[in-house]
Amino acid sequence: MKYIKIYISIFMMLAISGCVHLVSYYDSVSYKNLTDMKGEMKVFFQSCQKEVAKGEYALSAIDGFVLSSAKAYEYEKGKGLNDDTISQLKTLEKTIVEVKSRYSSNVYSGSTCEARAEGVAPDASTGCLTIGYCIAKWKILETAFDIAITTEQSKIEEFK
């Protein structure tokens, strides 16, 4: 019991002096992962706000976003004392996976992009994203990235 009290006292002193951190440190790799993904997705979504996203090129770009967000999430999961960021990245990953699902559940036919009658297609390369969806989804993604980026930035202030 005596030792527990000593350990708690030492921990409290270290915490007060700033030697023990209750959240992870600012990580430049985390910051770069987020800003890189945001930049790449911004270019894609700006383009599909003018013209329907379709074909192999769009599908390959979306697959790339899904992969990048999965990697970024796994990277954060590997760090300790990082629950807030892990939860944010999980939501971000889910939001990006939704884009892939939406692409697969639509079909480009003639000059229009519509929901498939049969649901998700086995051949996603015939899918598409409508202009309206791209406008709205980018507003969500941009906000989500900004929240995650400012969270990482705030760790610099926290440990100054």
Binding site: S87, T95, A115, A136, K137, I140, I147
Partner: peptide, 21 residues
């Protein structure tokens, strides 16, 4: 410019943003 299905997904996303923030 949005289907009901897309609208539902996006409104769920707004609720998720609240969890992130």
């Amino acid at each position: 410019q949005l289907t009901n299905d897309e609208f539902e997904e996006l409104m769920e996303d707004v609720v998720d943003l609240n969890k992130m923030q």
